Amino acid sequence: MKKIEVILPFLFVTFLMLSCGSDDSGGEVAADLQVIGIWDLSEVNISSAQDVNMDGTSSTNLMNELDCISGTILIDGDNVWTFEQTGISITTITGGQYFAQCSVNDVTGTGAWTANGNQITFQGSTTLGTLTLSGDRLTNLIDDDLPGIRSYVYVKRE
């Protein structure tokens, strides 16, 4: 009986130590859980400010210049994504000025996604590729100079 009285507290303490391991996340949510949801396009960034809508104010975010731009990424918990976004055409005019317009063909896609740290890879899409998660923002950094697009930024819908 004495052995049980000695062993039982020892087993209890051992169990407590093992159940509170150092692998606890400290309240952090893994990227693969943070990314699940609906993401709305909030920025289409270009390398130099343009006044495409001729309102007297130039912007590096084409969404401030063209009302027709929209986009959404739906990322679900089954590692499937769907995507729809307005196609954008940018052409050179002269003197560092460019003409941008929404095209009649939307860009769409679907496929599987994986998370590795803060990098979310969208398999089956050359348009999305790998995006970087930072808080409530997903950024697709393309880094093209005009007449290309530098980045797309999506914000998680509440």
Results as ranks from 00 to 15, higher is better:
residue 34 Q to D: 07
residue 35 V to M: 02
residue 37 G to S: 03
residue 37 G to A: 05
residue 38 I to N: 09
residue 42 S to C: 09
residue 42 S to Y: 03
residue 44 V to Y: 02
residue 45 N to P: 03
residue 45 N to E: 12
residue 46 I to W: 01
residue 48 S to F: 06
residue 48 S to Q: 15
residue 49 A to L: 10
residue 49 A to T: 05
residue 49 A to I: 06
residue 51 D to Y: 14
residue 55 D to V: 09
residue 56 G to C: 11
residue 57 T to H: 09
residue 57 T to D: 10
residue 57 T to I: 14
residue 59 S to E: 03
residue 59 S to A: 11
residue 60 T to E: 08
residue 61 N to K: 04
residue 61 N to I: 02
residue 61 N to F: 05
residue 61 N to P: 05
residue 62 L to Q: 02
residue 62 L to R: 00
residue 63 M to G: 03
residue 63 M to D: 01
residue 65 E to M: 05
residue 65 E to G: 02
residue 66 L to K: 06
residue 67 D to W: 08
residue 67 D to V: 09
residue 70 S to R: 15
residue 73 I to R: 02
residue 74 L to C: 04
residue 75 I to S: 03
residue 77 G to N: 15
residue 77 G to M: 10
residue 77 G to C: 08
residue 78 D to V: 13
residue 79 N to W: 12
residue 79 N to K: 14
residue 82 T to W: 13
residue 82 T to F: 13
residue 82 T to K: 14
residue 82 T to S: 13
residue 83 F to C: 05
residue 84 E to F: 05
residue 84 E to H: 09
residue 84 E to I: 06
residue 84 E to G: 11
residue 85 Q to N: 14
residue 86 T to S: 15
residue 86 T to K: 12
residue 86 T to P: 04
residue 88 I to T: 07
residue 88 I to N: 03
residue 88 I to R: 06
residue 89 S to F: 11
residue 91 T to V: 15
residue 91 T to W: 04
